[in-house]
Design a protein around this nucleic acid. Structure first.
Lengths: 236, 236
DNA sequence: CGTCCGGTTGAGATAACTCAAACCCAGTGG
DNA sequence: CCACTGGGTTTGAGTTATCTCAACCGGACG
């Protein structure tokens, strides 16, 4: 399903930062928006003809799948973020898949339109460079975590990253603002859902978090930071 | 030590692909080349004022260091490859350090010069986007390997990657063309030098590789592929 | 009301780590 | 020229964090 986009939605998108009104109008003219129901796949790993995507509303999970079916969650995308853009520079083939974990509204461009836009407005290419660079830096950090830290710390880091990205204040603390399963957390941290479950249970017993079915609330963020930084329990 | 660069060196560099002679001359005019002795650090993680770098000759190791001193090897850079460029889009701070693992000749640009070049020749920015995108895809692959595969497979993958990047035919098989310690291999695969040593010893006993002090020769690349792909021993 | 998906928890297995000791070779300096 | 030194490597023994296998639970949803 495709509808005409509203120019206002581009506001605050890092990808289009610094563009003047005329350029933004040009960008919008090439775009189409679409609604994606929760659970639907937006594109699959290996799909060809990759264009540009940006999320207006909802939440998208980017997943890489290996030859034997093992999955890892590369990242979650929130409103205002671009996604799938990497593929345009990788021969038009998506190196990972995208699934809506909540009802979504996305705005998309065909590969030709996106390329033309970048040529007409180099600022977009520069912005994309900055965004992709930031993601590369982030993935490199995770690579180090995964290589050198134990599971508990990695889970703590993953949760803190999610809080930064999609944290919502609630009475009990800070809540992750979208459905998140143990399996998801396991695939983000390179462990199994069993270990994640045990870890969250232990934290719950300490009053550190509150969690249920696809739902996590952090009650003591500072204590989670202490675990992530591997500070002695005394200071927790 | 800084000397005037020779325009010919830019030939075949992906970063400057598709530029005409005038543009290449412009690029060269802004550049300075430098010799770096083996073992010297080119820049440290956290250094400010990041510019652009490209390697003419030698080999550079990119290393990330965590808060507690744990190191991981992000990648090795060979002749013709750019490096350190990511930092320009990350607030000018290098997110990782670079060390010469062999005597090197590099060509470098100041941040101001590099930015100006990208503005005058958008093609450079597009090329950089492609290169950084490729590296992001590669790091994401390693993230999946690290999450889901056992060390033996990861070491096999790492060696195969190095062969592709710096393999040299020799009588006994294919040799990694630069000094590579067990520690390096461990930091590339998220394990310890002990485990790497044991693994290589086992492979050596099977006639699969030949290795010594900072030196590895793969005698049966196909067998290494079989390990990397986790094929049954029967087919090795 | 039944089914199924996501979660919890226990018990046992094991890959890989840690700790420890010794070795080998390449330079280096006397 | 040779002894010495130190970095890189090897190998053993014991420990353990985490995985695997397995059974069970409870709420959500049709």
């Amino acid at each position: 399903m495709t509808i005409a986009p509203d120019p206002a939605v581009l506001h605050g998108m890092p990808l289009f930062a610094g563009l003047d009104a005329a350029a933004l109008a040009d960008v919008v003219r090439q775009a189409r928006t679409a609604r994606i129901p929760k659970g639907a796949q937006i594109f699959a790993q290996g799909d060809e003809g990759a264009g540009g995507h940006a999320l207006i509303d909802g939440r998208v999970k980017i997943v890489q799948t290996g030859a034997e079916g093992q999955q890892v969650v590369i990242r979650f995308i929130g409103p205002g973020e671009m996604f799938g853009t990497l593929a345009m520079f990788m021969g038009g083939v998506y190196p990972a898949g995208a699934v809506a974990v909540a009802d979504c509204v996305e705005i998309r461009w065909t590969p030709a339109a996106m390329t033309a836009l970048m040529e007409r407005h180099p600022r977009i290419a520069l912005n994309a460079l900055g965004i992709i660079g930031g993601r590369l830096a982030e993935v490199q950090d995770r690579l180090r975590e995964l290589s050198t830290q134990r599971v508990e710390r990695r889970i703590a880091h993953a949760l803190l990253r999610l809080v930064r990205q999609a944290g919502r204040r609630v009475e009990a603390g800070v809540e992750i603002g979208f459905p998140l399963s143990r399996q998801d957390l396991a695939e983000m941290t390179g462990t199994t859902l069993h270990t994640v479950s045990r870890t969250l249970s232990a934290w719950e017993a300490q009053g550190l978090v509150e969690s249920g079915r696809q739902h996590v609330v952090i009650r003591k963020p500072h204590a989670l930071v202490a675990i992530a930084e591997d500070l002695p329990p005394a200071s927790r």
